[in-house]
C-alpha cells in the first residue's frame, strides 16, 4: 500500500527527515512513535503533500505510484487521508457544505459521478449518526465552537465519508480525554478493513491501547530507529524514549 524509501525532507531549508524508510501493507495498522522533534508531523504533512515540505531525496510510493510530484488534492483523491492533529476552524463554511465539496471534488478527480443533494444527505445522516454527530453540528461553521472531541469525531466522519485506502492519524489523541479518545478510537476501528491501512502517529502509548497496531516504529532524528510489535509501545512506556533509543544507538 505505502512504501517510503530513504526519504529526506527539508522544511525552510532545515533537514528534518533523514532517510526514513517504511512499508505499510494493505489492511495493517502501523504506529509511528517518537519524541518531540523527531519528525512526526513532518512525516504526516509530507505524505499529504503540504507545500514547503521539500523532498530532497528518496521516494514515496502509494499503490505503486510516485506521490512526490502530486498536489495534496490528487493524493487525497487517490486515497490518502490525513486526520489533523489540530483540525482547522473555518468560519463561514458550514460543515455540511465542506463535506459535500470534499466528497464531490474527490469523485470528480477520480472521474466518478458526483452525488446529488438527496444522495449526499442520506449518506451523511447515516454516517454521522454512528459517530454521535448531530445535524445541528453539521450546520455550524466547520469546527467553529466544536470541543476537542467534536473536532476529532468530525475528522473521523470525514474519513468515513471519503473512504481512504490509507489513513494517517497525526497525534489524534492530543487534546482528548479518555472518553473522547475511546469514541474516536471506536470510530477508527469500525473503519478497519482488509483493503485499508492506517498509520497512527503518536507520542504516547495510550492511544495504542484502543487502536491496536500490527507494527510499531520508533522515529528519532528523522528516521526509523527501531521497529517491533505492539510490545514495543509498552517497553517505551516503561523505560522512556532515551533508554530505548539509547539501546539502539
Amino acid at each position: 500500500m505505502l512504501e517510503i524509501n530513504d526519504l529526506h525532507v527539508s522544511v525552510h531549508g532545515k533537514d528534518i527527515l533523514k532517510g526514513l524508510s517504511l512499508t505499510v501493507p494493505p489492511g495493517e495498522v502501523h504506529a509511528i512513535m517518537g519524541p518531540n522533534g523527531a519528525g512526526k508531523s513532518t512525516t504526516s504533512y509530507t505524505l499529504a503533500g503540504r507545500d514547503g515540505y521539500d523532498v530532497t531525496q528518496g521516494s514515496i510510493r502509494f499503490k505503486g505510484e510516485d506521490m512526490v510530484p502530486l498536489p495534496p488534492e490528487e493524493r487525497a483523491a487517490k486515497g490518502i487521508f490525513l486526520a489533523f492533529q489540530y483540525p482547522l476552524e473555518i468560519p463561514g463554511v458550514s460543515t455540511l457544505t465542506f463535506l459535500k465539496s470534499a466528497v464531490n471534488a474527490q469523485a470528480r478527480l477520480r472521474g466518478e459521478k458526483e452525488l446529488d443533494a438527496v444522495q449526499f444527505l442520506k449518506l451523511i445522516r447515516e454516517t454521522a449518526k454512528g459517530l454521535n454527530i448531530s445535524e445541528e453540528m453539521l450546520k455550524r461553521s466547520l469546527n467553529v465552537g466544536f470541543s476537542g472531541g467534536e473536532k476529532k469525531r468530525n475528522e473521523v466522519l470525514q474519513m468515513a465519508l471519503l473512504k481512504p485506502s490509507l489513513a494517517i492519524l497525526d497525534e489524534t489523541d492530543s487534546g482528548l480525554d479518555i472518553d473522547a479518545m475511546k469514541l474516536v478510537a471506536e470510530g477508527v476501528n469500525a473503519l478497519r478493513a482488509p483493503d485499508r491501512s492506517f498509520l497512527v502517529i503518536t507520542h504516547y502509548q495510550r492511544l495504542l491501547d484502543y487502536i491496536v497496531p500490527d507494527h510499531i516504529h520508533i522515529l528519532a532524528g528523522g528516521r526509523i530507529v527501531k521497529s517491533g510489535d505492539k510490545s514495543l509501545a509498552l517497553q517505551l512506556e516503561e523505560q522512556g524514549y532515551d533508554a530505548v533509543i539509547g539501546k539502539v544507538a
Binding site: 499529504a48 503540504r50 488534492e73 487525497a76 487521508f81 482547522l88 463554511v93 471534488a105
Partner: peptide, 23 residues
C-alpha cells in the same frame, strides 16, 4: 492546506475561503 488535503482543488479551495470571508 486542510481543504486541499480533503481533495478540494486549490482554485475551489480559494473560492470557498474567499466566500467564507464575505459570508
Amino acid at each position: 492546506f486542510f481543504l486541499r488535503a480533503r481533495g478540494i482543488p486549490e482554485a475551489e479551495a480559494l473560492s470557498i475561503l474567499i466566500e467564507a470571508f464575505f459570508s
